[in-house]
Each structure stands twice: as structure tokens, then as C-alpha cells.
């Protein structure tokens, strides 16, 4: 990768994140509090609206589908959170599963991430179509992926761990060369 390319986009495998899949009805009493508490100190606000992700205290909750959430946390907190949620949701119909090992995480840093995604999938990743706080599940290349903005000029995405090698090569390819510059325009 040339220096110029690296300035536009750097690709990093990781960080390894703890991930917990939670399925339960959204109207279960105390769900938001349970999730907020799990993240640490949040009250009620940890139930993201559809298509969004809320972050706090090094963790996050992403909306996966109307009855599914994904908790993201530092790896070492996974077991504790699972236990805690399982306790708090006892008596409610739900499913909790540690899926940390089933997913591979990548971080794209630099202003070129929008173009890299636009090369690989159909989602509208223009500033108008995709902004901070959104959590998008879509297709990159030939596999499913989910991504969100994790910081200034930084995107985080994950895919299934079995296709991590494919995803890495795919992203490396998309990070190479100069794109058409379609998101560089002043008002774009």
C-alpha cells in the first residue's frame, strides 16, 4: 500500500470484541434498564431504535431486528454480562448466546472508508445515507456484514469468522488505488 493510499484508508483486524446475542420481545419490562445496566450506569437509554447503535462505557448495544439485540463489550466482560442478563431476564421468554467467537471484527480508519464500502456493497454509504449512530447490516462482496461509525473517520465492521480471510482480502483490495472521489465533493 502506498503512503497516499494509507493516508486515505488503513485496515486493521480487530479489536476482538465480546458479543452477546439477545433475542426477546422489545416490550419486555425492564429490558432497556437491563441492557443499560449491563453496559454500566446507563438508565433506559440502552435500547437502540431500529437501525441504530448506542454506545457507552466501552460497550454498545446494536439493533439487529425487532426482537434481537447485539451487545458489544470488552471480551473479558462477556461472561459476567451474560450471567447478569440471564438473571435479570429470568422468567421472560428470551434467548441469550455468546457469539464473540462467531464474528470477526475489522476497523477501517481514514477518510476513504466510504468509498471502500461503496466498492463492495449496495448500501447507501454517502454522508446523506449513513451517519454516526446508524448500524447497517448489508452485503459486502458476497458475504453478510454489519458496520457502524466508531469514531471520526473510523468505521467498524464485522462478518462471520469463517469468512474473515475473504473479508480481509476484499477490504484490502477496496483500500487500494484511488476511488472515483465521489464522496469528496464539498456538498456531498
Amino acid at each position: 500500500m502506498s503512503e497516499r493510499e494509507a493516508a486515505r484508508l488503513r485496515l486493521r483486524r480487530g479489536p476482538g470484541l465480546g458479543m452477546i446475542a439477545l433475542r426477546c420481545a422489545p416490550h419486555v419490562p425492564g429490558l432497556g434498564e437491563a441492557l443499560g445496566g449491563a453496559l454500566g450506569g446507563m438508565r433506559g437509554a440502552a435500547l437502540p431504535e431500529r437501525g441504530r447503535i448506542v454506545s457507552a462505557n466501552g460497550g454498545a448495544v446494536a439493533w439487529m431486528s425487532p426482537d434481537e439485540w447485539l451487545l458489544l463489550c470488552p471480551r473479558e466482560r462477556t461472561a459476567g454480562l451474560l450471567e447478569r442478563l440471564s438473571r435479570e431476564l429470568a422468567g421472560e421468554h428470551h434467548l441469550l448466546a455468546d457469539v464473540s467467537d462467531a464474528r470477526a471484527v475489522f476497523t477501517l480508519s481514514g477518510p476513504g472508508w466510504r468509498e471502500a464500502l461503496a466498492r463492495l456493497g449496495p448500501a447507501d454509504v454517502s454522508p446523506a445515507g449513513f451517519g454516526a449512530g446508524m448500524f447497517r447490516r448489508s452485503r459486502l462482496g458476497q458475504v453478510a456484514a454489519a458496520f457502524w461509525i466508531s469514531g471520526p473517520d473510523e468505521l467498524r465492521l464485522f462478518c462471520r469468522s469463517s469468512v474473515a480471510g475473504y473479508m480481509e482480502a476484499l477490504l484490502e483490495g477496496a483500500a487500494r488505488g484511488e476511488g472515483p472521489g465521489i464522496f469528496d465533493a464539498p456538498g456531498a
Binding site: R160, A164, A169, A174
Partner: peptide, 15 residues
């Protein structure tokens, strides 16, 4: 497009 060579199709790998 990019779907050629190693990227022709995803290859899934076990741990």
C-alpha cells in the same frame, strides 16, 4: 469486478 482469483467466491475456514 473484484470477484476473481482468491476473491472469486468466499472460502470459509474453520478455526
Amino acid at each position: 469486478g473484484e470477484a476473481r482469483g482468491d476473491l472469486f467466491q468466499p472460502v470459509r475456514e474453520t478455526p
